[in-house]
């Protein structure tokens, strides 16, 4: 039963990832669709990081003691000023874990 569950889950997930990559699938993406899809990366990635930063324990946390929020603001400022993805990620993570260690 567990083997069957794993195999069926694998099928569903693979099809969702591969489906639109199949060239024989009879769809052509017109300019309007491609334009719409060009917003997918910023939209999806923001929808992933938003709740991590603003929600703790099912509640909105806009407190300045929310290290996620403080460090996210710092990361945004750093990303605007440096335009360097790796640097922004590493320095803001250092700040985050530094703050956590300090306030533990």
């Amino acid at each position: 039963m567990i083997t069957l569950t794993i195999c069926l889950m694998a099928c569903i997930i693979f099809l969702s990832r591969y489906g639109f990559l199949e060239p024989r699938l009879p769809i052509t993406l017109n300019a309007a669709t491609l334009r719409f899809l060009s917003y997918s990366a910023p939209a999806v990635l923001t929808a992933i990081w938003g709740p991590i930063v603003f929600v703790s324990e099912h509640e909105l946390n806009l407190n300045w003691q929310n290290h996620y929020l403080v460090c996210a603001v710092f990361a945004i400022v750093l990303a605007i000023t440096t335009r360097n993805t790796l640097l922004t990620t590493i320095v803001s993570m250092m700040l985050f874990f530094g703050l956590r260690a300090w306030y533990m």
Binding site: A41, P42, A43, W49, C71, L86, T88
Partner: peptide, 25 residues
């Protein structure tokens, strides 16, 4: 999980180069 947030912020922020992307975000 902050590492995920940090990476995605670092990727998304420089992509915001037009008003419509800012609004989308």
């Amino acid at each position: 999980d902050f590492a995920i947030a940090a990476t995605f912020i670092a990727i998304v922020t420089p992509q915001i180069n037009r008003p419509s992307i800012l609004i989308c975000v």
